[in-house]
C-alpha cells in the first residue's frame, strides 16, 4: 500500500501550519507596510506643515492602523485556513496552536517595524523604545487574539454565538457606567488611573486578557465544525 504515515513531532506539525499560513507573506507581512508607507509619507508632510505654522506633535502612529489591520487579517487567516487545513488532515489543536504562533510572529514582526519607524522619526531613548515595543506587541497580539477567539466562537456556535457575544458585550459596555455610578466609584477610578500602580496593573490585565482569550479560543475550537456553507 501507499506508505502509511507515522506521526510527526508536535514542533514539526506546528511549523508546517505556520509555513502554510505565511507561505504567501503578502496579506500578513507586506501589504500592511505598503499601505503604511503611503500613510506615513502623508503624515510626514502633514507634520512638516503643522511645524511650519508653529504647531507640534505627531499626527499619525503606525500602530493605530496595524491594530485594526491585524484584527481583520487574523480573522481572515483563521476563517479561510481552518477548513482547508482540516481537509488536509491537520487536527484542530495543531491548527489552532500553529495559527496562534503564526499570528504571534506577525505581531512581533509588526512591532519591530513600528520601532524602526519610531527610530527613523528620531526616537533614541532605549528604555522608551523598549517600553513602547512591549506595549505595542501586547496590543497587536490582543487584537489578533480577539479576532481568533471570535472566529473560534463563530466556528463553534455560528450566528447564535456571534449574536450572544455582541449582545453581552454591548450590555456590559452600556451598563458599566451605571454600575460605577451606582456604587459611587468614579473618584476611586480616577485616583487609580493617575496612580503609578495603573501602569503595572495595565500590563497585568492586558496579559491576563490575552491568556484568557487564548484559552477560550482553544476550548471553542476543539469541537468546532470547519464547514463554511
Amino acid at each position: 500500500m501507499s506508505t502509511q504515515v507515522t506521526e510527526k513531532p508536535l514542533a514539526t506539525r506546528l511549523l508546517r501550519v505556520i509555513k502554510m499560513n505565511l507561505s504567501n507573506p503578502w496579506p500578513t507581512l507586506i501589504t500592511p507596510w505598503l499601505i503604511l508607507a503611503v500613510l506615513l509619507t502623508t503624515a510626514f508632510f502633514f507634520e512638516l506643515w503643522l511645524t511650519s505654522i508653529g504647531a507640534t506633535g505627531v499626527f499619525f502612529e503606525p500602530e493605530q492602523f496595524l491594530i485594526i489591520y491585524l484584527l481583520v487579517i487574523a480573522n481572515q487567516v483563521f476563517l479561510n485556513q481552518f477548513p482547508l487545513a482540516l481537509s488536509y488532515g491537520v487536527t484542530r489543536r495543531d491548527f489552532y496552536l500553529g495559527t496562534v504562533l503564526s499570528l504571534t510572529f506577525v505581531a512581533f514582526a509588526s512591532t519591530v517595524g513600528i520601532t524602526l519607524v519610531s527610530i527613523l522619526r528620531g526616537a533614541n531613548d532605549l528604555t522608551d523604545l523598549l517600553n513602547a515595543a512591549g506595549a505595542n506587541f501586547s496590543a497587536l497580539l490582543a487584537s489578533e487574539l480577539l479576532a481568533v477567539t471570535l472566529t473560534a466562537l463563530y466556528f463553534r456556535f455560528r450566528n447564535i454565538g456571534m449574536v450572544t457575544f455582541f449582545v453581552t458585550t454591548g450590555t456590559l459596555m452600556a451598563g458599566s457606567p451605571f454600575v460605577v455610578t451606582y456604587l459611587d466609584l468614579w473618584d476611586e477610578l480616577e485616583r487609580f488611573a493617575f496612580s503609578s500602580s495603573w501602569e503595572f496593573a495595565r500590563t497585568v490585565i492586558g496579559w491576563s486578557v490575552i491568556a484568557l482569550m487564548l484559552l477560550i479560543g482553544y476550548g471553542l475550537i476543539r469541537r468546532a465544525n470547519p464547514q463554511l456553507r
Partner: peptide
C-alpha cells in the same frame, strides 16, 4: 477525532471546497 496520527493519513476533498481566496490566492 483530534488524532494527529490518524488525520495525517487522511486527505478529504470536498465538493465545492472553498479555498482561502486572500490568504492563498493562487
Amino acid at each position: 477525532f483530534e488524532n494527529s496520527y490518524v488525520m495525517s493519513n487522511i486527505a478529504f476533498i470536498k465538493e465545492a471546497q472553498r479555498y482561502p481566496d486572500n490568504i492563498l490566492p493562487k
